[in-house]
Design a protein around this nucleic acid. Structure first.
Lengths: 244, 244
DNA sequence: CGCCGACTTGAGCAATCTCAATCATGGTGG
DNA sequence: CCACCATGATTGAGATTGCTCAAGTCGGCG
């Protein structure tokens, strides 16, 4: 939090040439948000392409009847790219800070202009969009085919480092949000945690201990595993095993 | 089916300059598939970028335990873009023809090369990816927040032309597939159809009559409506009302 | 101490799934 | 023409999962 957050650390832009980055960020704005503050609203004109530089930003979609659905929780280094409509005119989801967050806003018209000027940027954006597609496909797979318990297992596994036999981790945000992310009610999430207790998952409010990662993995539909989300913060996690 | 299917009619490429299109399609292959035949398998090396030129192609994701989840059913003019992994190395979902289908396969390495050479192609691909994102976001919203009945209503509405008061339409594929698309079992779909009968939706195997589109719309969560899928075939639909 | 928010737990209910039986429908062979 | 079968669709009954509502716990924090 003390080091100045910078686009330099955002993987999405790692392969973009320096000159393009300089032009792209010429009038970029770095904004700070407190928990619950709105980054932009669904339906607003899409004046910016936003990147999370610190904290979390949740993307939600609100139906006309008022139902709000959580679409994604974006982590440090992620763009809020799925917010943009295909025509680039408005936001199809709203964005709100979860906890304290820094967001870099790049001018959308400039961004669009640069896409035509810089093949390396265009390629980077195509890859970013493809990553977002992957994430959503995984989400759909999970929602259509798995129980709440399996989804929770999958979520916890996505927080584990690869190839460890056990690990302790801190949940990245509160259980209400995790429930929304998994598409269940808070109470259901609580019960799912209770069931996982039987297979060696202890929870203490926000800290989770997974005694046997492989066991949890096999529980969650034959050991399926998300391709190691770059999303979740590794610095909150300690673990024993191959990587420890 | 008799006119030769051509990339010329694919909206995705409408804005791409002729020269790029020519280079892109230099060694393109047009393939035909019968119902159930595999276009490509999940995990295969992604040698091609595929476009549906006739019929339907379903994209499914198979978990290691064998569970198969339907991700999308792609219509004429759609790319199978969501099949590509971010690194472009392999397919993250499998593709299979639904009924008779024509698929154009473009060389993936050439495609990637052309992305750097042709800003208009890059822009078109970014828009296509964005449309795919929209579709998946809508899917997630639907899965997380709506009942089977509401999802069915939404699906039927996506098949209706805009601004009509009533309409008759033919379901684009069989009910087993529709059920998979909505993320329910076919029995549940059948019961959902039965419930909609009470609000003026008649079904005769594959033909559906919607007596009052507005009523159906209000049933499905306050009149939410998909942004008029370009996906479904308009030529199978007859309707009365503002547009008729 | 006492309140508040976040979490947990319990009980009943609603939606969906599973399993199984039934019913059209279309094609096939006699 | 009809008996027969395969397939898709429908319907019923009971089990499961997740939801709703309500109460209870727990850990800060003024």
């Amino acid at each position: 939090m003390l080091e100045p957050p910078s686009l330099r650390d955002v993987p999405m832009f790692a392969t973009v040439d320096a000159q393009s980055m300089q032009r792209l960020t010429r009038d970029a704005k770095l904004e700070q948000f407190e928990d619950g503050q709105t980054v932009f609203r669904q339906g607003d004109r899409a004046l910016y392409v936003a990147i999370v530089l610190d904290g979390f930003v949740k993307l939600t979609r609100t139906a006309s009847c008022g139902d709000e659905t959580l679409i994604n929780i974006c982590n440090v280094g992620e763009s809020l790219y799925e917010a943009l409509t295909p025509d680039g005119e408005s936001y199809r989801v709203g964005a709100e800070a979860v906890g304290h967050a820094h967001v870099m806003k790049l001018s959308a018209p400039r961004f669009r202009y640069m896409l035509r000027e810089s093949p390396s940027l265009a390629t980077a954006v195509i890859e970013e969009a493809s990553r977002k597609l992957s994430g959503l496909i995984g989400e759909i797979e999970s929602l259509k085919g798995q129980t709440a318990e399996q989804r929770l297992a999958r979520f916890l596994l996505s927080l584990c480092p690869q190839n460890v036999e056990s690990c302790c981790l801190r949940l990245p945000y509160d259980k209400r949000l995790i429930a929304a992310r998994l598409g269940v009610k808070q109470e259901t999430l609580s019960r799912a945690f209770a069931k996982l207790r039987e297979i060696g998952v202890r929870t203490e409010t926000r800290d989770v201990t997974i005694e046997n990662v492989a066991r949890l993995s096999s529980e969650c539909c034959g050991g399926e595993r998300e391709p190691a989300l770059p999303s979740e913060r590794r610095d909150l996690i300690e673990s024993r095993g191959a990587l420890a």
